[in-house]
């Protein structure tokens, strides 16, 4: 029902036709709890998110900084697991058949769920792509092949350390888009200089026709706009997650939080504004 190939492709084609870059927003599924997280996801497209990246929480997020580490723990403490994450995608798809959803995370929860069962269930729930941080090209066949077979794009990461020798092999198995991690570091810490990002994007373009999204270290609408001038999409994660964290502290026992929703969606609108006006 919600299984449909090519949402990512269609979205990037539309963005290209509009002559603008996209905004990719990351939040951790189930942060601070399932209900609020579902409500955020539901409204992200209206706030201006072009693609939704949904983190699958993991106890040991090796490549993440404090903000996303804390968000994973909040989600896990609230009972998040893979079934619930896929269930959230399924309910999102009941109202939105266009906005691509990319699941991001670490391999172990998928491995334990069962790779084949996971790729099938994720495709059926309406997942379009996967970004798995700790599965580099050297190891990814065991996950990439089943994902592709199920119709899910396997997004490969490139970094400032992926040199020209590595890039062709990296591009080889990529689909959906290329994710350029703009700093050598963990999420939510340093920010890259725009010129270095522009150079990297140009280098990647030599080896791939896929759209290029740039993430890590983009915290403000201004930074998002700068990236939107040189790449096909800007990814913002820790900064959004931090808004959730700031409001979750005030949450207490209440399950329902208009303030949290307003703050998160308000911030996403500002980011979207930045991205949308970047090239005009």
């Amino acid at each position: 029902m919600s299984r449909r190939e090519g949402r990512l492709k269609a979205r990037f084609e539309n963005l290209a036709a509009e002559g603008r870059a996209g905004l990719v927003t990351f939040i951790t599924a189930g942060d601070p709890n399932r209900d609020i997280s579902s409500a955020i996801i539901k409204d992200l497209p209206d706030a201006g998110a072009d693609i939704i990246e949904l983190g699958m929480p993991f106890t040991d997020p090796m490549a993440d900084g404090p903000a996303i580490q804390a968000s994973s723990l909040r989600a896990l403490e609230a009972g998040q697991n893979m079934n619930v994450t896929l269930e959230m995608v399924r309910s999102f798809r009941e109202n939105d058949d266009d906005t691509p959803i990319v699941l991001m995370g670490y391999y172990n929860p998928i491995y334990i769920y069962g790779v084949d069962r996971f790729t099938e269930d994720a495709a059926n729930a309406g997942v379009d792509g996967l970004i798995i941080v700790d599965v580099p090209p050297e190891e990814d066949a065991e996950l990439r092949d089943p994902a592709n077979k199920a119709g899910i794009d396997f997004v490969r990461l490139t970094t400032p350390t992926s040199d020209e020798k590595r890039l062709p092999a990296l591009m080889g198995g990529a689909s959906g888009f290329i994710y350029y991690v703009s700093i050598a570091g963990i999420t939510g810490t340093k920010s890259a200089a725009t010129t270095s990002v522009a150079d990297a994007v140009a280098r990647i373009r030599k080896f791939s026709d896929l759209p290029i999204a740039v993430g890590f270290g983009i915290k403000t609408p201004e930074q998002a706009a700068e990236i939107a001038r040189v790449a096909d999409a800007a990814v913002v994660g820790s900064a959004i997650v931090q808004v959730i964290a700031d409001n979750a502290e005030k949450l207490g026992d209440s399950q329902d939080s208009p303030d949290l929703l307003d703050s998160v969606l308000g911030f996403v609108s500002e980011l979207a504004q930045g991205v949308r006006t970047a090239r005009s």
Partner: peptide, 20 residues
């Protein structure tokens, strides 16, 4: 040669670390 002991071992690290 890829660091596998049967199904175990390997190099499950972030791309940033791979070249290193």
């Amino acid at each position: 040669k890829d660091g596998h002991f049967g199904i175990y071992g390997g190099r499950y690290v972030a791309e940033t670390l791979m070249p290193l």
